[in-house]
Amino acid sequence: MSTPSYDLDVYKIPRNLVDVEALAQQASRYLKIAAEDAEFLSYHATRRDEIVAELYRQPGIKPNTSPDQFVPQGADPDVHLIPADAVIEELTPPKTLEDRVKRLHFAAAAMSVFSRFKITYGLLDHPDLEMQYQRRRTQIMSEYYKTEFALLFPESMKRVAAKRMPVTPPTRGHLPSPPPSRPSTISRRVSREDVDRFLNNPNTLVGTRFVHSTQGEGQDQSDSDYGTWHVTSYTVRVADGGVEHEYQVVLEALGGGALPMDGDEVRYLLQDSTFAV
C-alpha cells in the first residue's frame, strides 16, 4: 500500500498511550461480526445479492470499503468510526437478512478505516507493538472460531475440521509393503522476498493457496492458525500519492466467506504462511 502525501504524524499514537489489548479487541469485534454475517448470508446467497444491490442503490452508501472513501486526507478517523459503531450497535443482534447485510457492510468499512488509521498509521513508529497487536488479534479470533462461531455454525466447522483431519494409518498387522523411497513434498515458508514479490505483483496472488500458521517451520499446526487461505480478486485504484490495492481474501476458518483486506493485512497473513501443497 502506498503512503499518501499528507503528514502521518497526526495519526501516530504515542507509545505510552498504545493499548494493545484494546486495539486487538476492537479489531476482533469487527472481524467477528464480518465472519458471522458472511457465513450466515452465504446460506441465502440469492437474497443476499438482491439486498446488497438494493443497499448500494441508497444515497450515501458506498459500494466498497476503501478507507479513503470514509476519511478524507488528514481528517479524524473517529468521525467515521464513532457513528459506524453506533449503527453496528443498533443492528446487533440482527433481526433480518437486511440487518445482516447492512451490519456486514458497516463492520467491513469500519475495519478498513481502523486498520489503516489506528494500526498502519497509528503504530507506524512502534513495529514491535504492531506485531503484539497482530498476535493478540489472532489469539482472540482463534478462540472465537473454536467457541462462538463453532456453536453458531457447527456444520461449517465440521467441514473445516475434515479438511485438517489426517488420514488414519492402517492398523498394525495389516501394514502394506513400504513404497519405494522418494523425496517428500514439503511446504515452503513464504519468505520476505516472496512477500514483496506478491505485493508488488498482486496478480500473482490470485489462485495461489497458502496455509497460515504462527508455528515455526516443522512444528505442528495449532488451533491459533487461520488455515488455508487465498486471494480471489483485487481492485486497483489511483489515490493521492500512488496506487492502492484492496484484496478479497477467503479464509478457511470462515467456511468460504471473503473479507476485504488492504495490503498491510495481506502482508501480515503472508508473513506467517507456507505455500499450500
Rank of each mutant, 00 (worst) to 15 (best):
V113I: 10
F114Q: 10
S115N: 13
R116G: 03
R116W: 05
F117I: 04
K118L: 08
K118C: 03
T120E: 13
T120S: 10
T120M: 08
Y121T: 03
Y121L: 10
L123T: 11
L124G: 11
L124W: 11
D125L: 15
H126L: 08
H126C: 06
P127G: 11
D128Y: 03
D128G: 09
D128P: 03
L129K: 15
L129F: 11
L129N: 08
E130G: 11
Q132V: 08
Q132G: 08
Q132L: 13
Y133C: 06
Y133R: 05
Y133S: 06
Q134C: 10
R135A: 12
R135F: 12
R135E: 14
R136S: 13
R136D: 12
R137I: 00
R137N: 10
T138I: 02
Q139P: 00
I140T: 01
I140M: 02
I140V: 11
I140R: 00
I140F: 01
I140D: 02
I140W: 01
M141D: 02
M141V: 01
M141H: 02
M141R: 01
E143I: 03
E143T: 09
K146E: 11
K146C: 03
T147C: 00
T147N: 11
E148L: 00
E148N: 04
E148A: 03
F149V: 05
F149K: 02
A150W: 00
A150N: 04
L151A: 15
L151K: 15
L151N: 15
L151V: 08
L151S: 14
L152Q: 14
L152R: 13
L152I: 04
F153L: 07
F153A: 03
P154A: 03
E155M: 09
E155V: 07
S156F: 01
S156H: 03
M157C: 12
M157A: 08
K158V: 10
K158N: 14
R159F: 09
V160K: 12
V160C: 11
V160G: 06
A161P: 06
A161G: 04
A162P: 03
A162C: 04
K163H: 14
K163L: 15
K163S: 13
K163V: 09
K163I: 07
R164C: 02
R164K: 12
M165G: 05
P166Q: 07
P166A: 06
